[in-house]
Simulated scan of single mutants.
Amino acid sequence: MESPYARELHVAIGAVQAAARISQSVISADDKGVVEKADLSPVTVADFAIQALLTSTIHAAFPSDRFVGEESAAALRANPALLDRVWGLLQEHRDSPSCHIPDSPEQMCEMIDWCGSGAPDAAAPRVWVFDPIDGTKTFVRRQAYAINVALLAHGREVLGVVGCPTLPADVAGPATNDTRDPSGRGLVIFGVRGHGAYVRALLPDGDEDKAPVRRIEAHAATATAADLRAVSCYHLLDSGVDEAHKEVHARLGIADPGCDFLSWALRWVSLGLGLGNVTVWVYRKRERVGKIWDHAGAMMLFEEAGGKITDVDGKDIDLTVGRTMSANHGFVAAPRDLHDTVLKTVHEVLREQGKANLLA
């Protein structure tokens, strides 16, 4: 891909390939080193190792850039056995030409904490955002997950790379948490703002040129009302207003279920690939907000395919307010020319169901 971010893309894809190999080694293990965080969500040894690998690799190439990521190293500092296991995972990839490994366990923790304490900033020229394992709950069940990498320039997404180790490069919809790549490779989807989105198989170091790269057509730019297909999370989360989502789909003539993923990055990937073209997500509580690492970069891939994304109020998504996306409530994504119709339907359904309090 010819773009102003060719080197960044090369480095990020190489790092995601190495991260995918770490995740694939851990997902097959019975003991994934699961730790419960303060918000009761799980984190595994793969989350820690991948966040360290991504940060170290990109810092080595772009030492002035800043980082935001989901994890902190507090659990590693408090648990020497867990720390040793994560450090050991990274040592298995020390000779990989596509990544850079921290020099010591102490530096590994420091780099993880660069992300864990980082925040986006509209004034910052460049900030990388990582979700080392998006969909940890399904990852521990050996189901679908993603590795999400984004680059923000002054708060705006300019690059996205998502590794999807369970999905085949020729995946057809509707895909779900149980969809598996029989080859065991997975796919990587990537794009640069204004230069389109592309997909190819994940391959080992040195074999990248053997994988054909496919440019994703701007399918959402030509979609009609009859083409609408849903991407959502069905029955796995209690944070969304399922009854509203179901009624919106019904009124728009969208068959349920469509693509079904717990991971937000995989939902955006599904939209980018054209496995679906509508996502509606209304949180049950107005104060519930998204987290930047679940969305940044991955959502841009759908926009590169002709999609439009706002929150439930119709506001543009703001990635500059902090680690949580407190300026927005929920998401409405649809083909650009049909977005107003979908958004209007969402508002009608919420008011009719007595949920107008969920609108601004």
Rank of each mutant, 00 (worst) to 15 (best):
E8M: 11
L9H: 11
V11W: 00
V16N: 07
Q17K: 14
S25R: 15
D30T: 12
K32W: 11
L40G: 01
F48L: 06
Q51P: 06
A52H: 03
T55Y: 03
S56H: 01
F62A: 07
F67T: 10
G69F: 02
S72T: 15
L76Q: 06
L76K: 03
L76T: 07
R77F: 04
E92R: 15
I101M: 04
P105Y: 01
E106I: 09
E110H: 12
S117H: 15
A124K: 05
W128N: 00
V129F: 06
I133Q: 08
T138F: 08
R141L: 14
V149K: 06
H154C: 03
V161A: 10
G163H: 02
C164Y: 01
L167K: 06
N177R: 05
T179E: 04
G186Q: 01
Y198P: 03
R200K: 15
D209R: 13
T222Q: 09
L228A: 08
Y234L: 08
V241T: 13
L262D: 04
L262P: 00
A265N: 02
A265E: 01
G276S: 03
V280R: 03
H295V: 12
M299N: 02
L301C: 05
F302Q: 09
I309E: 03
D313Y: 08
D313G: 09
D316Q: 13
D318L: 05
S326N: 15
P335Q: 02
L338I: 08
L338W: 09
H347S: 05
L350E: 12
L350G: 11
E352D: 12
G354F: 05
